[in-house]
Design a binder for these strands. Structure first.
Lengths: 128, 128
DNA sequence: TCTGTTATGTTATATTATAACGTAACATAT
DNA sequence: ATATGTTACGTTATAATATAACATAACAGA
């Protein structure tokens, strides 16, 4: 079942969905001040929840956030991205065999795999 | 040929080498204040250079840094880590076929691979 | 209605990172 | 040896990212 979003969460999510690029928290805040959101806290709280339910992912190396384009995304914790260094767009990769690969890789070090974060940088189709 | 390090760079690198866990920049600063390092700038500058020559890597999701244990590390840009959620230790993975895998993965989206950052979270051998 | 839980608003502060400026150290070309 | 370019250094200030802490509101279920 779909979790219902609060007003603030909807506003933050909408801001991310309207953006081609990932947005930082303060950039989101700036975009939605006209809608009554006044403090970083409100943004970060909404982001926390949206990330928890998989509607938003964080790009760690950019300290930025994107709306997930996939319905009911399973990437609550593990995420894989292609990040274009030219246009800044982020493409989420959904490859279940990636996790398999990482499980195996981990095992070689007797490491118990839980989650992963993969960020691939390069040039996207459109910019090439 | 080995690039020679300046005094500040040596001090920062030593702090990281002495640590079992990755350290944040301000944590490094705290550790080496007694050696005359007084400002974040000095730490960040040293880190920039150390990262550039491959002696130090940044763990993006932790905003922290580790000394590379490999001689003349080739991971100037692409890095792969196993991060233990129990003891916080970070193990660097050197698998050249990872890059190959990511190149192929990228190609499927007509994306031109440059570099990557992989962070795998789980439990290490010692903590298991 | 009481109570527990979740969301909200708000102020303040912590944490991480860079900008900007002036000076020093040093290599090397004249 | 000195002028010049480059790299490093020291220092102060500030930007950018994220969380703490506290009071209040909204709401569901016992």
């Amino acid at each position: 079942m779909e979790p219902s979003l609060t007003n603030n969460q909807k506003i933050v999510l909408q801001a991310l969905e309207d953006s081609e690029q990932p947005l930082g928290a303060y950039s989101i805040l700036f975009n939605i001040e006209k809608k009554g959101i006044k403090s970083p806290q409100q943004v970060y709280r909404a982001l926390d929840k949206l990330i928890e339910i998989g509607a938003v992912h964080k790009i760690e190396s950019l300290n930025s956030y994107i709306a997930c384009k996939h319905k009911d995304c399973k990437a609550r914790e593990s995420t894989s991205f292609l990040i274009c260094q030219e246009c800044q767009k982020v493409y989420e990769v959904l490859e279940s065999d990636l996790s398999d690969k990482f499980v195996k890789l981990s095992q070689e070090s007797n490491f118990k795999y839980f989650t992963h974060n993969l960020e691939i940088f390069g040039i996207c189709d459109l910019c090439n």
